[in-house]
């Protein structure tokens, strides 16, 4: 899945502005961004629900929207929450959607519906009306709908929204299973721990712009690493590290810890720090190289504020 300069303007406001995404086949791609950053608008464009003001995109190697009829049946989607007919049961809802397009062979329908229901753990509630479903059950039914046929790409917008912890875990396992079968998964979420646990790749959106994308390792490497040393004499250790030429030396006497930025190709690596500290007569009790968590990176990229940006 590739986008080039994808842009959507609503009047003056550019909800999505020149986004170049590149989702490799087989990836589990986390799509991150604060509320209102343009994630859902991007997903709607990818699926052909709204037409971009500018730019182009392709799904499964096919130019969209021209190839929608061939590409979309191979794509399962959960967009902005599940939506079903409240007066129908879960099972009947799935049958309705299966019948509403190509590749929904009637002969295999019942079996595929049962398999999809079982896969999301909804078999017991399949005969209940959708109206009576809880938020988590609705979300599961949405996933079941996306899994009615074998898919090559799944586009899941906040798939664990409203789910209990067990449900979240099951969905995470489900996504891992699907990914190990070779399905490409494009997952929008703001639960960073979740992305960190299951994704191979990620991209970060803010205010309609794509700020960063790549493998998780690449993204983490972009953040600064720090060396964090537990010592008996923090102030002396701080002096030694500063003399070594390390920047941003931070001394925490109460905790008995000093830390400093480790720039790649900088004056010293962690091993050299350790040696210099010991030679300088400082007792070293622990030493670690710390990379920022995805959350710290995310906040660094998108800003601290709690208020929605626009």
């Amino acid at each position: 899945m590739v986008t080039e300069g994808l842009t959507k303007r609503f009047g003056e406001l550019a909800a999505v502005d020149g986004v170049d995404l590149s989702v490799p086949a087989g990836a589990v791609f986390g799509f991150l961004g604060p509320n209102g950053s343009g994630k859902t608008t991007t997903i709607r464009m990818l699926l052909g629900l709204i037409s971009p003001t500018a730019g182009s995109w392709s799904l499964l190697g096919r130019e969209m929207p021209a190839a929608a009829e061939v590409a979309l049946p191979r794509v399962g989607a959960l967009v902005e929450g599940p939506a079903f007919y409240p007066w129908l049961s879960g099972r009947d809802n799935l049958a309705r959607f299966d019948a509403a397009g190509p590749d929904g062979q009637r002969a295999s329908r019942a079996a595929r519906i049962e398999a999809a229901l079982a896969r999301v753990g909804l078999t017991a509630a399949a005969a209940k009306r959708y109206r009576a479903y809880s938020l988590g059950m609705r979300q599961r039914l949405g996933l079941a709908c996306a899994l009615l046929r074998p898919r090559e790409l799944l586009i899941l917008d906040e798939p664990t929204n409203g789910m209990d912890p067990q449900g979240t875990r099951e969905i995470r396992n489900l996504i891992r299973d699907l990914a190990s079968d070779g399905t490409t998964i494009f997952l929008s979420s703001h639960l960073l721990s979740e992305i960190e646990q299951i994704c191979t790749h990620a991209a970060v959106m803010s205010q309609g712009h794509l700020l960063a994308q790549g493998t998780l390792a690449e993204l983490r490497a972009a953040g600064e690493a720090r060396v964090r040393v537990g010592v008996d004499d923090p102030s002396r250790a701080g002096e030694i590290l500063a003399r070594l030429g390390l920047c941003d030396v931070h001394v925490a006497p109460a905790e008995g810890v000093v830390s400093a930025r480790l720039d790649a190709g900088g004056p010293a690596d962690a091993a050299r720090c350790c040696r210099e500290l010991v030679e300088g007569g400082v007792e070293v009790s622990s030493l670690a190289t710390v990379r920022p968590s995805l959350e710290e990176l995310f906040v660094a990229l998108t800003g601290e504020g709690f208020d929605v940006a626009r």
Binding site: G48, A77, G101
Partner: peptide, 18 residues
């Protein structure tokens, strides 16, 4: 209004056909 339209269209039902 139910939101089912977006799922019918991504099914894809095809707009003219729907």
């Amino acid at each position: 209004s139910l939101g089912t339209l977006r799922y019918l269209l991504t099914r894809p039902s095809g707009r003219a056909r729907l």
